[in-house]
């Protein structure tokens, strides 16, 4: 007996039981049976045809018109069978695509992710989490004997196109080592690369900074990026770290201004992407003040624990549904 015959037999039994007692139990069994049918990828037109052949068997005296009416119904149901099979094949394809994206995402991680350096005198914490599979936020650290540079960037747009664009930014930055020490010049060069190579409706915001570990000065420049915060320990106060500058890729002639901050013991530099400030909770967008409050509540901890705590808290506020890529970096002078 083939599987198919077994199914028809089982269907017949279930139907008979139901017709005899009309019980809810029998209906429940029918519902469970439908799961089995779906598992075995039996399409709706097949089920109908089985039903009809069982009817023929159980009620041989059915009128010809009734019999013929089933032929008509069958013809109508063939279309559903069509759609069902397409659905099956699209599902298989979706699974393939998903696994391909999975591979691409892990490749992006290996290509782009920068190690967080250990720097004497600085406590650094980083949390970067993509909203979808691929991250449109980018951060990068480069360390030498007397400085560490930090870049935080965000592509306007997310998902795969943003991620592909990010790879380009990374390699462009790697190829500009002479500008590493001058944040404004680095952004100007990067801006030209982006302007020439990226589709005009794609923009990139970036904050680039250089921390001089001997002098404890922080030089930075920004290209339309979400302002960070500077925590001045002596005054126990958070300030916005504004950096004026047009987003990358708009105009070739854009010039950027360099800013400078003196970093004292206990001071903190907080860099972020707009995924942090554009958290949408049930009460609306989260305010920058609320982010500051969150950081303040945890800032007695090591930097990595602070960024983790802030992320966990914001994730909870958004009911565990990230709408935008999230990147938060904290640098704290500890010596």
């Amino acid at each position: 007996m083939s599987d198919r015959d077994l199914i028809i037999d089982r269907y017949k039994d279930l139907l008979k039981t139901y017709l005899k007692g009309k019980s809810e139990t029998a209906l429940y069994k029918g519902q469970q049976f439908s799961r089995k049918l779906i598992e075995q990828q039996i399409s709706p037109d097949d089920v109908l045809s089985d039903h009809v052949s069982v009817l023929h068997e159980l009620f041989p005296d059915m009128s010809e018109e009734l019999k013929d009416s089933f032929d008509f119904l069958l013809e109508v149901m063939i279309g559903y069978g069509f759609a069902y099979r397409e659905h099956q094949s699209l599902r298989t394809r979706q699974r393939q695509l998903e696994s391909e994206i999975e591979v691409a995402a892990s490749m992006q991680q290996t290509l782009l992710m920068s190690d967080v350096p250990t720097v004497d005198g600085l406590d650094i914490g980083v949390k970067s989490v993509p909203a979808k599979k691929m991250n449109g936020d980018y951060f990068n650290f480069v360390k030498d004997h007397k400085s560490v540079s930090i870049a935080v960037a965000d592509i306007i747009g997310k998902g795969i196109p943003a991620a592909l664009c990010m790879s380009m930014i990374k390699y462009a930055m790697d190829s500009l080592p002479e500008q590493r020490m001058q944040p404004n010049l680095l952004l100007e060069n990067l801006n030209r690369v982006v302007e020439q190579n990226v589709h005009p409706n794609m923009f990139i915001t970036m904050l680039y900074g250089l921390y001089d570990t001997d002098l404890h000065e922080f030089y930075y420049a920004g290209a339309g990026h979400e302002p960070g915060f500077f925590y001045r320990a002596s005054e126990d106060r958070f300030e916005d770290m504004f950096a004026k500058g047009l987003v990358l890729g708009v105009s070739r002639q854009t010039r950027y201004k360099e800013y400078q901050l003196r970093v004292n013991l206990g001071d903190m530099i907080i860099l972020l992407s707009d995924g942090v400030t554009e958290c949408r909770t049930s009460k609306g967008f989260i305010e920058r003040d609320e982010i500051v409050d969150l950081i303040r509540a945890h800032m007695h901890k090591p930097a990595q624990e602070v960024v983790e705590s802030v992320f966990n808290e914001l994730e909870r506020l958004q009911e565990f549904e990230l709408r935008d890529d999230f990147t938060l970096i904290i640098l704290k002078r500890k010596v």
């Binding site: 097949d46 045809s49 013809e75 063939i78 279309g79 069509f82």
Partner: peptide, 10 residues
């Protein structure tokens, strides 16, 4: 059979 007939005509 009926189903295959319907599929062929479709």
């Amino acid at each position: 059979g009926n189903v295959d007939q319907a599929r062929i005509t479709t």
